[in-house]
Nucleic acid binder design. Structure first.
Lengths: 375, 375
DNA sequence: TTGAAAGCGCTAACAA
DNA sequence: TTGTTAGCGCTTTCAA
């Protein structure tokens, strides 16, 4: 029925497949009646090049399996008709969409944006396209988004952290999609994790502070509910404190949203106490910068009066004055590694192994000896 | 052939449609031989609910067109079998993918990330999913990415700025996809633009500086090649200078990549001249922050010795010390407006009109009177 | 309201 | 190597 291979070997602009609309069996009529402006299909290319649609498909997907002559004819037709193949039809027929879905908590945190950019760049290099969804740290919302990604037929899903509703995991389980988790260490969940030790790095921060003689150390964490990274960082600080025999003072452990404003507020909260800390470990760099701004506006010297440590190592932290002591998070590396692992898996069915990156403490100028005369 | 409507009205877990694999006509065999674990299809739901696939489709897309009784049966089957409909098949059949493509120059600029996040959030609220691609300001790369988005069958495309290869515009023209351009004013190109006046706001910056008595004004622009926003900002500064009868000194107009490091380098370049400017207009906030860091490290007072103006109004600029004078760019508003316009167009075929937002100058503490004793 | 069935534009199994 | 053709899982027309 498809009027492929209509004889003439030349390339004619025969676009639109049906000679007569009338005498086709009943059922739906052709949607685009004017066969003129309609986008060319593989059938049109086949007709123009005088080959079958199968050959067109081969030229597109595996050119070497077609004789140079036919290949050339098909390529000419593609160029002349401005053919763009339908990825949708391709996905349906091959059950591969060449599309990867990602659910990120936010894009307003440079560190996630950077990771995602690296992820996308690597995917694009391999012909994959990224579907993005941002959950705003809302688990319910997230499950729905995941469902939509799965509906779209993504070949794989990238998730941040292990902290997701059971329903989300179910959804993934029931789909054919591959999963990769970023920003986490391999845990109970049997999924490949590409991350680093959030807690361990936080513990190293405390080592550093303890070595400087600090004893009253505060933790301004991010919101830990539904955020295993924030939780791990806080836990790492606690662990470090205990390790060094330092007090874990409940009032000095606070949680703030990741914003400059909240960083300032958090600092104010800590310093309006009768017994302010001599050092503050922050859940991320944004919080740390906020804290520093508030200190500056109060005339409190950093690190003279108080040491402040960030987490993430945003590009700005090395340039600001004073430069921020922080934990260097391998965000781009994780993004790239995840993309590569996914593509390899999808291509050769290579197993995706977990990868743990190193997240070193970068000591700069916001940490110094504990001020004398304060406990 | 499809064993839909197999009699029993109850919901049975009859997953997989073919009773016997043997006596089907030749052609491709079933891909997933084990009909067991395969994902349920509309046919399975239909069979389980004792209705036709058409009814299943109706329940999913327009529940009110189905009788309560059948609707309920279908919904039960959907829940019990954990059915997730194939968006791919849906897109092919309906030629609507409920998917929107975006090509952004970078994600490492918080302002784009914020805009994109708002765009995605609004799209998600209407059931659309976002396909993202980042061009890294590379036009060739960009055309390829656009092509891939179009292949994926996106219903619409969001582009940043009007500065794109002719081939990109062709591609869009030939596709059925709707386009919306962000960050630009309606121009020669006949496409809806949702943006603000980059040049006008830059001109307002010069007004402000001129009023403060500055006469040697420098412009540290972003890279203008292939970036109409950067170009417009630079042009706005030039226009403002001429308007006020101030000199446009070529050596004081430099271009830098949008990074803190380049901002520092640019400042150094300007201040290593025998005749440094008394004010610097920066192409964006990142450049401005870099300039301020360099000034601080050289002991040059801001705004005492030099005034510095940013562009974008990133959240950090209001908190840093001194707080940055900058242009407030309506990034989220543009993202949201674009999403809404697209969805409305796709839903009701509403025409997409161009929208021009206001981008006011926010005067803070990095601008002050021109220092006396300097030209 | 509901069902039957033709397509949507590809891919891939099979035959030639 | 090439062509034929069934089928991917939906939507939608038409008829009932």
């Amino acid at each position: 029925m498809t009027e492929v291979n209509s004889g003439r070997g030349g390339i004619s602009a025969l676009v639109g497949k049906y000679r007569d609309e009338a005498d086709r069996p009943h059922g739906r009529r052709r949607r685009h009646v004017s066969a003129r402006s309609a986008k060319p299909t593989a059938g049109d290319i086949a007709a123009a090049a005088g080959v079958s649609t199968a050959t067109v498909s081969r030229v597109l997907n595996n050119p070497m399996s077609v004789s140079p002559e036919l290949r050339e004819r098909v390529e000419r037709a593609v160029g002349e008709l401005g053919y763009v193949r339908s990825g949708v039809a391709r996905a349906l027929a091959s059950s591969r969409s060449f599309t990867i879905g990602a659910v990120v908590p936010t894009l307003n945190n440079a560190i996630f944006a950077a990771s995602l950019a690296a992820f996308e760049e690597q995917l694009a290099a391999d012909g994959y396209t990224l579907l993005v969804t941002v959950s705003n740290y809302n688990p319910t919302h997230e499950t729905g988004q995941l469902r939509r990604l799965l509906e779209r037929g993504v070949d794989a899903i990238m998730l941040i952290g292990l902290d997701h509703p059971e329903e989300s995991w179910q959804l993934i389980e029931h789909s054919q999609a591959t999963v990769v988790v970023l920003w986490a260490l391999p845990g109970v969940r049997k999924v490949p994790c590409i991350g680093f030790d959030n807690a361990g790095a936080a513990e190293a921060v405390v080592d550093h502070l303890a070595a400087l003689g600090h004893r009253r150390i505060a933790m301004m964490a991010g919101i830990t509910a539904g955020n295993d990274r924030a939780r791990a960082r806080r836990a790492g600080v606690e662990r470090g404190l205990r390790k060094h025999g330092l007090p874990v003072i409940p009032g000095l452990f606070i949680e703030k949203r990741y914003s400059h404003a909240d960083g300032r507020a958090g600092f104010a909260e800590l310093f309006d106490r009768p017994d302010p800390p001599t050092a503050i470990v922050c859940g991320n760099d944004v919080l740390a910068m906020g804290a520093i701004f508030e200190a500056q506006s109060r005339g409190i010297a950093v690190p003279g009066d108080v040491s402040i440590v960030g987490y993430d190592n945003l590009s700005i932290t090395q340039h600001m004055m004073p430069a921020l002591t922080t934990v260097s998070v391998p965000s781009e590396a994780m993004g790239r590694a995840a993309a590569r692992a996914i593509v390899e898996h999808l291509t050769d069915n290579a197993e995706i192994g977990s990868i743990t990156f190193h997240a070193p403490l970068v000591v700069r100028n916001t940490t110094g000896p504990a001020p004398a005369g304060r406990p």
